[in-house]
Nucleic acid binder design. Structure first.
Lengths: 347, 347
DNA sequence: ACGTTATTTGCAAACGTTTGCATATGGTTT
DNA sequence: AAACCATATGCAAACGTTTGCAAATAACGT
């Protein structure tokens, strides 16, 4: 028969005249339990709707099989792809994922770190907010020897395990490409420099400029949150300079799209008058007309790597995180019409 | 001093010469504990790096503060937006989210249902796979009186709490719009009819056609997974009919985009020769040229509603789910150039 | 001075599972 | 017939927290 509320191992034991230990072992397939007993237990389990209590089990084993994930925003293309990969990979290892989002608020991030900390997650995977410069709220994880992996946006000074895209190279290649295509006055629209990825891309940008003997004009470089409104405002400023830049390296595709919108509205031809490169290879970059040259970051692979690293940190009792791992996943410049006159003409 | 491994309430108690009960109460702000004691406890907590054990707490209270979410794919635009909303809303109530994805595999879905079931989630929010027609694996939740909310794709026969978009209306309005714009031979490209949303959209499509006295040509109606490859293949079939339809109602924007790609390639003018409507109002719909008319589903609002419903089911001890709740969130037809000759000409 | 009440703390059991050790049974070996 | 092994099961403690109840102390009124 079926009890209404919680049906436990004890109940099963009682019903079968066994001890809870035997039932527990039967359920976990312990070799010392006779097949007959296992069958009987299984039968009762099925008809009673017994619900294994993972909480109790986790408590007893101090093993929650849960990984925490803390991201700025779930719904951004890059992030959601990474999450997809992480979830798939963790599932292979029998781990579950608890997902939190900071909405790019440092306050929220701090709060969630504590929530996750006390939730007994076995590891934490993080992409911090745009404004996280002080990473000390993550220290509790290091202190407690709980694996902590940063990805994408990562602490520069703070030592930790990191999975990053090659943002320096991304910035460098984008800019070099623009220069090769003939751009000279190149604008750079990027995110807050408090964030590692934007610092690196900026550095790559500068390097390519210097290498080509070009000057980085202060008035062409802008840092702010990369949404459409901000991007359009920046375009206004650039436009007000008298002459619009003939190249734009935008640090995400939303911004690149906004620049394109602005250019079209003002009769600036793309790529003839201005060449544009975005970042992240958002699905929109490919289908807009002209298609936008962008940097592919391989977010799925990045997510897989983060999950793999996390699992090896957890499973590897041998080398318990004595040496810090830092992986850089390569990027790829995907050249499209927005920056290439020859491509634009062939169609 | 700081112990290396788990520092518990008992340790704090011992260090202060108190009992664990007192420490526990001090931590939870119980009114019968003196301020002095609370301060002393707080001090030790901070310097010891004490980690509250939510597992033990949950076990004792049989309250995990965790909600499960089971979706086909995290990274689809619609889904990731819903998840964002759900996560934000649940956080307001102090609940956490455990996210799983079925990758549209029924097998995986069944497995994950069991995993979630034993994880002691207090409620489950689900958008099932495309192919889930038998919903009996969700019954354990009903049996155990654990709130279960379906959204978007929902069981038709199976009684349950549901949050759905108004797919019938979406299908009806899209089709009516195409007809109003002059389309007569209208193709319908949709997903598997095993899935509620596609059945409803198809019904709306048929209704609008009948209302206008138009015939639904079998050869113009196609059902399959809605990705680019399948859509292009369907386009080939339509093209092979001799005359391409002059209207296409596609059940997602990926498909609409593929149709557009095909039309462009074959010199079929949009919207002059063929008018196209998509579904979901994906960010790409707005920026492609010509922009695609689509159905806005308000995924964020949908997610909030799902979370709100879940919370009221959990908190409301009063009416413990005796009556089933079914909410339909309105949709909105967003008219753009892909279906409107007048709009296309003004630019 | 004594009963009454308010305040603060402690005891011990409970949540459901797991596991080392001990035990029981039957069968095999010398 | 004694000693031994293999197999199957049970006992009881433990994981860390919470909470009803009891108890200790202090404060108060009559």
């Amino acid at each position: 028969m079926k009890k209404d509320s919680p049906y436990t191992i004890k109940d099963i034991a009682q019903e079968l005249g066994l001890s809870p230990s035997t039932v527990s072992r039967a359920l976990s397939g312990h070799p010392h339990i006779s097949q007959e007993t296992k069958d009987r237990v299984q039968e009762v389990v099925e008809k009673s709707g017994y619900r294994h209590n993972a909480l109790a089990s986790s408590l007893r084993n101090s093993k929650s099989n849960m990984i925490g994930l803390l991201v700025p925003r779930i719904s951004m293309y890059f992030q959601s792809t990474v999450i997809t990969a992480i979830q798939n990979k963790l599932h292979e290892f029998g781990y579950n994922l608890m997902v939190c989002q900071s909405n790019d608020s440092v306050e929220m991030e701090k709060e969630l770190v504590n929530v996750l900390y006390s939730s007994r997650i076995e590891g934490l995977i993080v992409s911090p907010t745009l404004y996280t410069t002080d990473f000390s709220h993550f220290d509790i994880f290091n202190k407690s020897k709980i694996p902590l992996v940063f990805y994408d946006r990562v602490p520069k000074t703070h030592s930790a395990h990191k999975i990053v895209g090659d943002d320096y190279q991304g910035g460098y290649l984008s800019t070099k490409h623009l220069i090769e295509q003939g751009s000279r006055r190149i604008a750079h629209i990027s995110g807050p420099l408090s964030c590692s990825i934007y610092r690196d891309r900026y550095a790559g940008f500068q390097e390519a400029m210097h290498e080509a003997g070009l000057e980085v004009e202060k008035s062409l470089v802008h840092f702010h949150e990369l949404n459409r409104e901000n991007a359009l405002a920046t375009c206004e400023k650039l436009y007000a300079l008298g002459e619009f830049p003939n190249g734009v390296f935008a640090c995400n595709d939303t911004t690149a799209i906004a620049v394109m919108e602005f250019a079209k509205k003002h009769g600036i031809a793309i790529p003839a008058d201005v060449k544009i490169v975005g970042y992240s290879n958002d699905p929109r970059a490919e289908i807009i007309e002209p298609a936008i040259t962008s940097i592919e970051q391989f977010p799925y692979e990045m997510g897989e790597q983060a999950a793999d690293l996390m699992m090896s940190l957890i499973l590897e009792k041998v080398n318990p995180g004595r040496n810090l791992i830092s992986m850089t996943t390569p990027i790829e410049l995907v050249i499209r019409k927005s920056s290439s006159l020859s491509l634009a003409l062939t169609t």
